[in-house]
Amino acid sequence: MKGNLEHFSPTQILNLVSLSKKSGTLDVNRKGRKAALSFKDGKLIFVSMEDADGSLTSVLSKAGRITREQADVLAKHAEKHGDKQLGLLMIQKGYITRNDIVQAIKRHALASVNEFANWNSGDFIFDQARQIGDDRIIVPLDLENIIIQIARAQKRDEQLEEEIPSLDVCLKFADKSKINIKELQLSKEEWSVIRYVKPENTIRMIAKSLNLSDRDIRRVVGSLREAGLVELMQVRQREKLSVEEKQEKKALVGRLIARIQNI
């Protein structure tokens, strides 16, 4: 099975794999960005996405369970003995629990598959013969729930694109917002965006400063607006009229008013 995501979307592929309970590996290449998703009996068992190769050391490092230096040392060990051996060793030494490993791998797989779901182009090939190596730790995940979550998020993103059609607008704090901002429980991204809410900053500028994608900044601004904290404010300046033009325009509006009053 091969094709391009432009014609067969990530969710359609995941759905097909799930329904036909396929096993194998899906390789995707999107302008040099690569993803590999492995499945067993229609369940997602392993994801490697760009620099996050899905190995135990990279997953634990990303989750903040080990430092970069520790990851480098452990990666050498894993090269020789495999992720399973490394995991067992770490559990035996009391560095980490089995649950920590499972949760970290699960989080990595979900984050990666959510990222993959947003790819709208890229060549893909599904190879049923290619199985994930025995040395890897696999955490099987049901695709049905993942697909539903992705579909919900995509629907929400579409709505947000309609609500915030342009990122070249500024944000302002809602006039009626009487919420004590210090008592709010916001996410790290939401706090970061709040810091930049100024009349001179457009949403695009905020996204650039925080290194957020268009989709991510829309999500953050969307939730802040939903909570009634911020409003959109136009940045484009109204045309500047000369005194004569202003008088002329006022007279014109006056004529319109007089006429409509008498209809």
Binding site: Q159, S166, V169, Q234, R236, R238
Partner: peptide, 17 residues
């Protein structure tokens, strides 16, 4: 209502009138 708000924002972006 949500659609109405979205249309309002779209038109405000098109022209600051």
């Amino acid at each position: 209502f949500r659609e109405a708000k979205s249309i309002l924002e779209t038109f405000r972006a098109y022209a600051p009138t």
